[in-house]
Computed example of a mutant assay.
Amino acid sequence: MPILQSTYKPSFQFKNGFIATVYSGIIRSVTLEQQRERIATRDTDFLDLDWSYAQNKSTSVIILLHGLEGHAQRPYVTGTAKLFNQNGMDAVCMNFRGCSGEDNRLYKSYHSGATNDLDDVVQHCIKQKKYSKIYLQGVSLGGNVVLKYLGEDRILPLEIRAAIGVSVPMHLDGSSTELQKLKNRPFAIRFRKHLLDKLRIKQKQFPDLLSDDNLSHIKTLREFDDFYTSKAHGFEDAMDYYTQCSSLQFAQSIEVPTLVINALNDSFLSAKCYPVKEAKQNNNLYLEMPNFGGHVGFIQKGGFYYNEKRALEFVNTHNNS
């Protein structure tokens, strides 16, 4: 599909990617009433889902996936949910394992390529027998999960009609390298702190696998992936994890209309995170690359962000497909 021309034009101060990213991650707030549901996973763990609903009974639902160390109350999740609710669709925000305020049961948790949990949520929505149309949106890490899920060798439910990925690190090794650079040091430090705090909680349950000495040697996000993410989830090391789970390699196989919005000034993304070739070769893959927006920072007047409005437009365009 041809590359889409973006119409996103932020105000002057938000043309700076760092400012847009920080404002969106720390200052923005969204008010949304949610109802929590806990479901079982196929491997005896659990997922917490946070639902919000349209005013009238809806036959459409959007499943929303957050980013690294996020959760279902983050404004970039609730903003989309609220907009879709106001436009007649239900929304379910999926908390990755260990991200809902309670540690999950197993030693493993979540990662950029863990698609079985998303499939469990999709199947859960289908079993309710009230949704004939299901849409998917993933932000950052969640976007990688969505794109990988769509492009994997699986038979997708017919109810899935369209998907959106926002600020997606489609080449995980490249994105990991960018995050370790000086320009992203404040973000890398923040991510590392949150991840290590989670491991210290998990250490109480698995002391033989997580010693104080182990944790003290983790100085970077890549080292975290080398020690925990890869080993806990069956990969050899961080590079093996990045190689197997990058959604870029699955983009050519996506058969559901899918929109990817990656800003050109997103400091988290490497050049390979922009699937220009893949979009040109796949009629179902739409790529929009605004000049501005930083990482999930597509700020606009009026309360809702540009990417949220674009997601709704894209879904409405494919509402009858």
Rank of each mutant, 00 (worst) to 15 (best):
P2Y: 08
I3C: 08
L4Y: 08
Y8W: 10
F18N: 14
F18A: 13
I19E: 05
I19Y: 11
I26L: 15
S29Q: 13
V30K: 10
T31Y: 13
T31D: 13
E33R: 14
R38T: 15
R38F: 09
T44S: 14
F46L: 08
F46I: 08
D48V: 11
D48A: 03
W51V: 02
Y53H: 10
Q55D: 11
K57P: 06
T59I: 09
L65M: 11
E69L: 07
Q73N: 15
Y76P: 01
T78I: 09
T78Y: 03
G79V: 03
N85S: 06
G88A: 07
R97S: 00
R105Y: 14
Y110Q: 06
Y110C: 01
G113P: 04
G113S: 11
D117F: 04
D120K: 03
D120Q: 08
D120N: 15
V122E: 05
C125P: 01
C125Q: 14
C125K: 05
K127C: 12
K127H: 12
K130I: 11
K133R: 15
I134V: 06
L136T: 00
G138H: 04
G138M: 01
V139S: 11
V139T: 12
S140W: 00
G142Q: 03
G143C: 03
N144T: 01
N144L: 04
V145M: 06
R161C: 13
V166L: 02
M170H: 09
E178R: 15
Q180M: 14
R190P: 02
R190C: 13
K198M: 12
L199Y: 09
I201H: 12
D208C: 09
L209Q: 15
S216D: 07
I218E: 08
R222A: 11
D226Y: 05
D226T: 04
Y228N: 05
T229Y: 07
H233S: 10
G234Q: 10
E236T: 15
D237M: 10
A238K: 08
Y241N: 08
Q244D: 12
F250E: 01
S253R: 14
L264Y: 06
D266S: 10
S270N: 11
A271W: 05
A279T: 06
N283H: 14
F292Q: 01
G294T: 01
G297R: 00
G297H: 00
G302I: 10
A311M: 10
A311Y: 03
L312A: 02
N320P: 06
